[in-house]
Simulated assay, not measured.
Amino acid sequence: MPDQFSSGIGRREVLAGAAGVVAGLSLVGLTPASAVPAEVPKFAPARGRNVRVLVTGDAGTGSRTQWAVADAAREYHARQPFSLAVGLGDNIYETGPDGPDDEQFATKFENPNAGLDFPWAMVLGNHDTSAIFPGDGGWLARGNHEVAYHAKSQRWWMPSRYYSLRVPEQNPVVEFFVLDINPLAAYIPPFLDPYWAVDGPYMNQQRAWLDTALAESTAQWKIACTHQPYLSNGPHGNAGNYEGLPIEPINGVHAKRFFEDHVLGKVSFLLSGHDHTLQVLEPTPATVGTRQIVSGAAGKTSSGHPRTGPNAALFETQNELGFMVMDLTANSANLKVVTVDPATGASTEVFDRRLG
């Protein structure tokens, strides 16, 4: 099989946990994800068994709105330090980076997040893999530039296109399973490249890796992280009916099957972005106890777009910027939602509830 990496990076097969172990956090990457060892010292998560997670998504605009949300996160971190962050995709708007040395990594990630000095577990989004028009997901290999950037940044954690993070390493409180379902939800499906096909080598190996990793995980909390959600009341809608389109596969029917076959009922939470909203949705019979959370309002909102889904929600807002805070211990999972006023930068805690 030819190597799917560009920019001269060769295939580096890494056994589970063999690379990137840093002060209580480990990564797991298997081929064809090709885990990339870091070339710089990486920020470590805060120590201890109380894990506070900054949950943010769709941030990478480089605009004043991204900076406003980041400023609010900095202010929160100064009072109640985060252990790590999860970035739920669309990291580099509008079309993704042109290489691992692209200046956009500085202007749309490093500079806005200065002072938020902890690991950022990053997810690939459709805008990160654009080909012809922004967000089409038609150049899947473009995402490898973001994997390569893992070697260059202290904050940015994307050692492979899919991977897991355990915090702490021994007797983990939480394990995050960062997944890449872009091949299943691209607006320009990969018809011409069998590697990325729905049942091609990449997705089949990701499925096999995920099934094994979930079965072997000893973490109290198992959390899946994707860009595209299974359920959403935002403009993109639910998997299987993305954009309200009856056209397969761009309606996300394959993403829906992936979630149902490999994720739902096996994790406590599914964290996603894609819709520029903040949503805490109720589990449904189809989610088999898994709760869908959407946090995609770190750079844009869905103001002016229709609310599409009929999903029951504990909380949702379509027109406010913000982020979420997840506090995890061995015995509890608590979620806060923080909204941010782009004009004043003022932040407001609008939701606070124990979810587990």
Results as ranks from 00 to 15, higher is better:
S164I: 05
Q292F: 01
P172K: 02
P172S: 06
E248L: 08
T129S: 13
A38V: 08
V51G: 00
T65N: 13
Q220V: 15
M158F: 11
S130G: 08
S6E: 14
A151H: 06
H274Q: 12
A297L: 05
A78Y: 09
D211I: 02
L54F: 07
P183I: 00
D101T: 14
P183F: 02
A68Y: 02
V69A: 14
M122G: 00
P190T: 12
S63P: 07
G17E: 09
F43M: 07
G240H: 14
A297M: 06
P172T: 05
K152Q: 14
A346S: 06
V40E: 00
P32R: 05
P159T: 02
A298C: 02
L140P: 05
G356W: 04
D341V: 09
M324I: 04
P97T: 13
T61F: 08
R257L: 01
F315V: 11
T317Q: 04
K42D: 03
L210P: 02
L281G: 01
Q279K: 10
W120R: 07
S6H: 12
P194H: 06
G299K: 05
P45R: 01
A38E: 04
T129H: 03
P246W: 13
G345D: 13
G135N: 02
Y93E: 09
G115W: 12
P119W: 09
K256V: 03
E110Y: 15
G244H: 12
A239Y: 02
Y242D: 05
